[in-house]
């Protein structure tokens, strides 16, 4: 790693003073599991590394009447093991439990998980000056793309690697962002950006801003949710495709449905059309099948990843069938 100045900020209000507007110059350090990898590979050479772990309001889980308030620097293992999250927010507990490895969940934070950079092997390799690094080509298009995007891709075809994000979006979470202009809150769904809107970053966060808290509304009564993650290797792997599914079932009818896919698009992919197909109807096999078809209708695979379309459809079907039988 290249030399840098380590800045340990203990008060949130002081934070913006130490973050640079230019994204290359400063980096936020929380769990460090992604940041150190990027720095070791020489993909990031910040002059300042700003530790935010000692800022008290960024840590911890608060269970309120409205829902959860999770500090961005809360470790993933705390979320995974939180009894209320396990009982009332299963999709979130399952998603977080599926992240990386026990060691990395003890280090990584929820804010870091949402803000992590893509795992695309071209992005991660020093040899490839790709679009995401300011270059002029996406190596995946004519290269090796079995893990790449089937939805929302172009001109860059990364997939968003977060497991927590699809679950949180399904739950209707919002994120609080803090920067020089103060605080703002946005729905998590609107936090992420497609490459066509922003090639260099995956979200709306300015380099001198930080995610401070995540608010998760308490699911309405009779809500069921789950997270299905498909990976090639069960021991430590990112999702090839994952499904965050949530339904509110009243008298056999779907009052509300949420379906967010991970690992298939440059952002966590909300399948609104599929949700509409499910809402107002019973969770029948036919409906579920229609929803699965609708979710992938716009899929536009590259030459090695068409299997993900089949996979995603099957996982969606499996997820809602399981919710129906739960």
């Amino acid at each position: 790693m290249f030399p840098f100045e380590y800045i340990n900020v203990r008060e949130l209000t002081a934070l913006p003073d130490y973050l640079e507007k230019d994204g290359e110059k400063s980096a936020i350090l929380a769990g460090g599991t992604d940041l150190l990898g990027l720095m070791k590979e020489g993909l990031l050479k910040p002059r300042k590394v700003v530790n935010i772990k000692q800022i008290r309001e960024l840590r911890g889980i608060r269970d309120t009447r409205k829902g959860l308030e999770i500090g961005a620097a809360t470790r993933l293992s705390e979320i995974e093991q939180h009894p209320i999250i396990q009982q009332q927010y299963p999709v979130l507990a399952q998603a977080v439990a599926s992240i990386a490895t026990p060691q990395l969940r003890n280090m990584g934070t929820i804010g870091g998980n949402l803000c992590q950079r893509p795992r695309c092997w071209y992005f991660r390799g020093q040899e490839y000056h790709c679009l995401k690094k300011g270059g002029d080509m996406c190596y995946a298009v004519d290269g090796l793309n079995k893990y790449h995007a089937i939805l929302g891709g172009g001109p860059c075809y990364i997939v968003h690697p977060s497991d927590a994000a699809p679950a949180l979006i399904a739950l209707g979470a919002t994120v609080e962002i803090f920067g020089p202009q103060g605080k703002r809150t946005v729905p998590l769904e609107e936090f992420f950006q497609l490459p066509e809107d922003n090639l260099l970053r995956e979200n709306i966060l300015a380099p001198n801003e930080v995610v401070t808290r995540i608010f998760v509304p308490r699911p309405e009564a009779e809500t069921r949710s789950l997270y299905l993650k498909f990976r090639e290797r069960q021991s430590m792997d990112f999702a090839i495709t994952s499904v965050a599914a949530l339904v509110q079932l009243r008298n056999g009818k779907v009052q509300k449905a949420r379906l967010v896919l991970g690992g298939v698009a440059p952002i966590p992919w909300r399948a609104r059309e599929a949700e509409k197909i499910l809402e107002g109807n019973s969770l029948s096999a036919d409906r579920i099948q229609q929803a699965a078809e609708a979710a992938l209708k716009e899929a536009d695979p590259l030459d090695q990843n068409a299997y993900k379309v089949i996979l995603a459809r099957n996982l969606i079907r499996k997820a809602f069938t399981q919710l129906q039988n739960a």
Partner: peptide, 12 residues
């Protein structure tokens, strides 16, 4: 807590 020493800064 088990953690990975390669991915932790000593100052941290």
């Amino acid at each position: 807590q088990p953690m990975l020493a390669c991915s932790l800064l000593a100052v941290d």
